[in-house]
Simulated assay, not measured.
Amino acid sequence: MKALTQDRYGTSDVLEVRDIERPEPGENQVLVRVVAAGIDRGAWHLMTGEPYLMRLLGFGLRAPKVAVPGTSFAGVVEAVGPGVTTLKAGDEVYGATRGTFAEYAVASVDKVALKPSQLSFEEAAVLPYPTFAALQALRDHGHVQPGQRVLVVGASGAVGTIAVQLAVAFGATVTGVCSARNVDLVRSLGAADVFDYTNEDFADGSHHYDVILDIGGATSVARLRKALDRKGTLVIVGGEGDRWVGGLQRQLWATALSTLVPQKLTVVVAKENTADLVTMSELVAAGKVAPKLEQTFPLAEGVAAVAAFEAGDAAGRIVIST
């Protein structure tokens, strides 16, 4: 089968499309013919091996253990392994696994769900990663309730675009933070107000929120707390930092500080699971969530697709199709 592969850590320049052996499903696994795979920040970190701490956590010291990058997909079940009873060959599915930038991938059945019929394969392929992160952040950590004020920092990204829609669906009044070129996009998602972080300071103390969702950023905990209600909740989803530990220092500081202040400061470690995908499918069917696509590249141009993601010019999600 054709796959986008890497034999060392790095950016798009280490990738190459080549023929490799097709995987076979094991117990409680399904073999999926991948129709589309979404590119996201999580998959990019696994590809580059940064922060370096990831390498010590078992992903491979000198090269990734999984030579095919990609973590989110949508496709058709080709075969099922022993013990699989909930899915069958021919089912249209979406979910999460390693090695999705390929014609076929194997996934654990407990990380896969039936694809929403309302979505194309390309649209469904970009949903798994932000579904887990945004849904668990808002529902399980932020405990967002109707009428609350929610601030989403990083509102135009993969997780942010879904988080804004989810918070609105939960009945919150949402404010987004993004760059000037994405203000209209974030408003179209349902945000009542939007800060252009290049010209406005959302943490100047003039606005306060019940829940702040900070996604993939580097804003200090002190600044975020200035925009948080006295008994509000800050939820940190990922974060950028140095190449050694990434945003871990900020996350650890937030966790430690939370024991000393009235505000709740928490960190999300997203867990991949079928139940959250089913919840997302229901929200899609109800018209409350819809992914925003920018461009689709064929697998043969997978290197260019990842390069486009790295350039950061896209207003929506980038997809690789097979």
Rank of each mutant, 00 (worst) to 15 (best):
residue 4 L to N: 04
residue 4 L to I: 04
residue 4 L to F: 04
residue 4 L to C: 03
residue 4 L to K: 09
residue 6 Q to N: 05
residue 8 R to L: 02
residue 9 Y to E: 00
residue 15 L to E: 02
residue 17 V to L: 10
residue 18 R to C: 13
residue 21 E to D: 15
residue 22 R to N: 14
residue 24 E to P: 10
residue 24 E to T: 06
residue 26 G to D: 06
residue 26 G to V: 01
residue 29 Q to F: 08
residue 32 V to C: 04
residue 33 R to I: 03
residue 33 R to H: 09
residue 33 R to K: 09
residue 39 I to H: 06
residue 41 R to L: 13
residue 44 W to R: 12
residue 49 G to P: 15
residue 53 L to S: 14
residue 54 M to T: 04
residue 55 R to E: 08
residue 56 L to P: 15
residue 59 F to C: 07
residue 61 L to N: 08
residue 64 P to L: 01
residue 66 V to H: 13
residue 72 S to W: 06
residue 89 A to P: 14
residue 89 A to H: 06
residue 94 Y to G: 08
residue 97 T to D: 13
residue 101 F to Y: 15
residue 104 Y to G: 07
residue 104 Y to K: 06
residue 105 A to Y: 01
residue 107 A to S: 00
residue 109 V to W: 01
residue 112 V to N: 03
residue 114 L to H: 09
residue 120 S to L: 07
residue 123 E to F: 10
residue 129 Y to S: 11
residue 130 P to E: 08
residue 135 L to N: 06
residue 138 L to Q: 01
residue 140 D to N: 05
residue 144 V to L: 07
residue 148 Q to T: 11
residue 148 Q to R: 14
residue 149 R to Q: 10
residue 149 R to F: 02
residue 151 L to A: 04
residue 161 T to E: 15
residue 161 T to G: 15
residue 165 Q to Y: 03
residue 166 L to P: 13
residue 166 L to V: 05
residue 168 V to S: 06
residue 174 V to R: 07
residue 175 T to K: 00
residue 178 C to Q: 12
residue 179 S to L: 10
residue 194 V to K: 02
residue 195 F to Q: 04
residue 195 F to W: 08
residue 196 D to I: 07
residue 197 Y to I: 11
residue 203 A to F: 07
residue 204 D to K: 01
residue 212 I to R: 00
residue 215 I to V: 13
residue 218 A to I: 05
residue 218 A to Q: 13
residue 222 A to D: 15
residue 224 L to G: 11
residue 225 R to D: 15
residue 227 A to R: 00
residue 228 L to S: 08
residue 234 L to S: 10
residue 234 L to I: 09
residue 240 E to V: 13
residue 242 D to W: 04
residue 243 R to W: 07
residue 244 W to C: 07
residue 246 G to I: 04
residue 251 Q to I: 00
residue 253 W to Y: 11
residue 254 A to E: 04
residue 260 L to K: 10
residue 265 L to S: 08
residue 267 V to T: 04
residue 270 A to S: 14
residue 271 K to Y: 08
residue 280 M to N: 14
residue 287 G to M: 03
residue 290 A to C: 07
residue 290 A to R: 12
residue 290 A to I: 00
residue 291 P to N: 03
residue 300 A to P: 13
residue 302 G to E: 10
residue 303 V to S: 12
residue 304 A to Y: 03
residue 306 V to S: 10
residue 306 V to L: 14
residue 309 F to H: 13
residue 309 F to A: 10
residue 318 I to D: 05
residue 319 V to W: 01
residue 319 V to G: 02
residue 319 V to T: 03
